[in-house]
Each structure stands twice: as C-alpha cells, then as structure tokens.
C-alpha cells in the first residue's frame, strides 16, 4: 500500500516529463505543419507575403476560412510533372537505400565482429567525415567526377582510359547515386552496427554446435535479430533522400528530376507558396505511410 502511494507521488513532475516531447512536437512539428496546410489552401498574390488570405485578425477569421480552397491540390493532379517528380524521387530513394544496405551491412558486420579494442576506432572512422561540412564533401565529388577530374586522371594513369578519353559521370544520375550513397552511408552503418553489436555470440556458437552451417546460421539468427537495425537504417536514409535537394542540384544533370528540385522551382521561380506548400504536404503524406508501416512492424518485433 505504502509503495503504491509513493509511486503515485508527485504526479505533476511525471506529467511534465511526459509533456516535454509532446510540447516539442506541438511547437516544432504540428504548428508549422498547420501553417503549411493553411498556405497550401490559399491563393498566390503579388504581395508580402505572396499569398492570400493571410489570417491577420480574429475578426475576419471565418471569412478567411471560407476563402480557402483545394484548388492547388487539384492542380497537382492535373500536371504529370508532379507525379513524375514524386515517382522519380521514390525510385532514386529506394534504389539508393538498397545500395546503402548492401554496402553498409557488411561494413557494420565486420565492425561488430572486430576485436573489442579497435571497435571505437572503427566507429570513429565512420563518424569522421561529419567533421567536414556536408557541402564541401559533395563539392569534393565534383572534383573527382568531372571530366578532367581526379578519376579521369587516375584511370588515365592506370592505362584504363586513353589520353583523350574522359569519364562522363558528372551531371548524370550515376553521379547523384554516388553522392547519395557516399553521404548517407554513416546513417545506414550506425544503426546496423548497434543492432549487430548487441547480438549474443553464444547463439551462433549454439547453432554451430547443433550443426548449423554458418551461412544458414546468418539467415536464421543474425539477420532476423538485426532487422530492427536494418529498418531503422533504411528509414533514416530513405526519408531524407526522398526530399534531397543539394546532391541532385550539385551533381545531377538538368534531367535529374526530384521532388526537392520541383519544390524549389515552385517556391523560388514561381513564387507560388501555395502550390509549393501543397507539394510539401503531399510529400509528407507519402512519407508518413511508410513510417506507419515501420512502426507497426516494430510493435510486432
């Protein structure tokens, strides 16, 4: 009895602790999102800010609400450009996430199996690139991939390319994939590593004792136990890659269509805040579905 009352104790501190993350979400996610939804229902105008209605007072609140319309969303379905941008982003994000998994898993596995003494060093090496600005690292790829860049020079030196031949990777989708896989690799490796490191080695020993070949043991034991890491890594990469703007803009050619660039065009070239807000809302909806699937899956594990 005494224990129970103690646990009930100062409830308000408990509530405070619970409230902090909710407050955070409210202020930094929900409130901006509501504003974006509101702009997406407005119309563009030549004014400051460039849309109307603006909701500048409580008195005209309901009049303003009545002026809102879904026209911008209808516009999105009218023009195939938007769907092609979404699909193209989806394709690029899926393919690069798959590549990241294929490259990241063996690295994380090797790190987790390395002697304990050198694991911190290996971890450090994965994190080290973050010490340099992301933009500078992407710019460095321009220096490597451009026709007269380091890659061409190296391949010419090795005799793979003739003196007049040059690599044609810069400003293509291949360059975008290289840039994305390079930039996001740590985000894939870290969750994988933390999942694989926790793996109980005795399980594999037991499997081996019971006559299970290593390859099968991997698929029966290691892979299922690392799944939470795989899922976390995939989403950590997939979601930001969907909205990626910098890498396709710097490394991609004119024909690399991604939703981030379409959004940029709407916002900056067309000054169409309402339509760009609508594009952003739809993008969020597209991303929320996989997140829900993910959470559902996590509950099951």
């Amino acid at each position: 009895m005494a224990d129970q009352s103690a646990a009930r104790g100062p409830t308000w501190t408990k509530w405070l602790v619970v409230a902090v993350p909710y407050l955070w979400l409210l202020v930094f996610f929900l409130a901006p999102f509501v504003i974006i939804v509101k702009i997406s229902l407005s119309q563009t105008a030549i004014a400051m800010p460039p849309y109307a209605p603006v909701f500048d007072g409580l008195a005209t609140f309901w009049d303003n609400v009545r002026e809102l319309s879904l026209e911008n969303y209808v516009w999105l379905t009218d023009d195939p450009l938007y769907w092609r941008s979404y699909l193209s982003s989806l394709r690029i994000a899926s393919l690069s996430t798959l590549m990241l998994l294929l490259i990241g898993y063996p690295i994380a596995y090797a790190m987790a199996r390395a002697p304990k003494s050198i694991r911190p060093t290996l971890l450090m090496l994965v994190i080290l690139p973050f010490w340099t600005s992301f933009l500078i690292r992407v710019y460095a790829w321009i220096g490597i991939l451009k026709p007269e860049g380091l890659l061409t020079v190296a391949l010419q030196g090795l005799g793979v390319l003739g003196p007049d031949e040059q690599v044609r990777i810069m400003n293509t989708e291949t360059a975008v994939f290289i840039g994305i896989v390079y930039s996001y690799l740590p985000f894939m490796i870290l969750p994988l590593y933390s999942a694989l490191e926790k793996l109980d080695g005795t399980l594999l020993e037991a499997a081996s004792d019971l006559g299970c070949p290593p390859v099968e043991a991997f698929w029966v034991i290691t892979w299922p136990l690392s799944l939470p890491g795989v899922i976390a890594g995939c989403f950590l990469c997939f979601i930001p890659i969907m909205g990626e703007f910098v890498i396709p803009d710097l490394l991609g050619g004119s024909e690399t269509l991604m939703i981030g660039r379409t959004l940029w065009n709407e916002f900056f070239s067309n000054r169409d805040w309402p339509v760009s807000s609508a594009v952003a809302v739809v993008l969020l909806v597209i991303l929320v579905v996989p997140i829900m699937v993910f959470q559902n899956y996590q509950k099951k594990i």
Binding site: T44, R84, S269, R271, D272
Partner: peptide
C-alpha cells in the same frame, strides 16, 4: 504575371528534363 510565370516555369522544366 503569376499565370504566365507558371506556364513559363512548367515549359522550362520540361525543356531541362527533356520531356
């Protein structure tokens, strides 16, 4: 004007993306 701008940006995007 906003309407012409929309046409312009749209056509230009299709020029750049080759579609």
């Amino acid at each position: 004007d906003p309407k012409a701008q929309r046409v312009l940006t749209r056509v230009w995007t299709s020029v750049k993306t080759g579609t």
